[in-house]
Amino acid sequence: MKAKAYPYLFILPFFAILAQTALGDLGANPVETISHFTGNWAVFVLLYTLALGPLRYLLPPSKLLSWLARTRRAPGLWAFFYAQLHLLIWLLDQILGGQELAKNLSKPFILWGLAADFILLILALTSLKALQRKLPWKKIHRFVWFALPLIGFHWSLKEEGDPQKALLWLGPLLLLYGLRRLKLKQNPLRRAPPARNPYPNSGRDDKNSA
């Protein structure tokens, strides 16, 4: 197997929850277990994907890091995959459980989550290779940073308004992002180690690639 295929490892949590389901080991509230599991993994994988960018600027140049950052499209899609499972189990629960879908959809708790998911959806669709060449995808993909506070609100509400858990996970990433911006401002000439641009006509504009 080629190193390039490493993001397939992100399917392992999915297999783990499948196995747990098959073994009837999801506990007293299987829907909730799956919901928390998939929500957590969507965030974990997204954080990994997003941390690569700033780390590449902040850490000493490294071939591995620059390669991981260049190929982060696949892990990004895995984050999207877990986010969709998270949404799917909620929808299934609403529909199969005969719940008041319209009413529940209007709750801010759900709306924050849906808004974050909508951003991920746009990013996933525009990451199709054919579209990447036509669109300024790098600019579009900066929208992912807007998803973070939305996820933070959604998560904090789930934790009874306690933002500590969300901050513990999302905070360091925002810090990395801020540090990178600061560094670029102080020394605009410092760029990431030269990387081969895999998509030459993709709208990747070096003057604005902060």
């Binding site: 007293a28 509230n29 299987p30 829907v31 299934l92 629960d93 199969l96 459980g97 005969g98 719940q99 008041e100 009413k103 529940n104 709750k107 801010p108 708790f109 759900i110 509400l157």
Partner: peptide, 20 residues
Amino acid sequence: IDHPRWSQSSERVLGSWFQR
């Protein structure tokens, strides 16, 4: 009377997937 995050009109039967 709804909870601000969900409707309270039905409840999951503990131990089941979708049975309410």
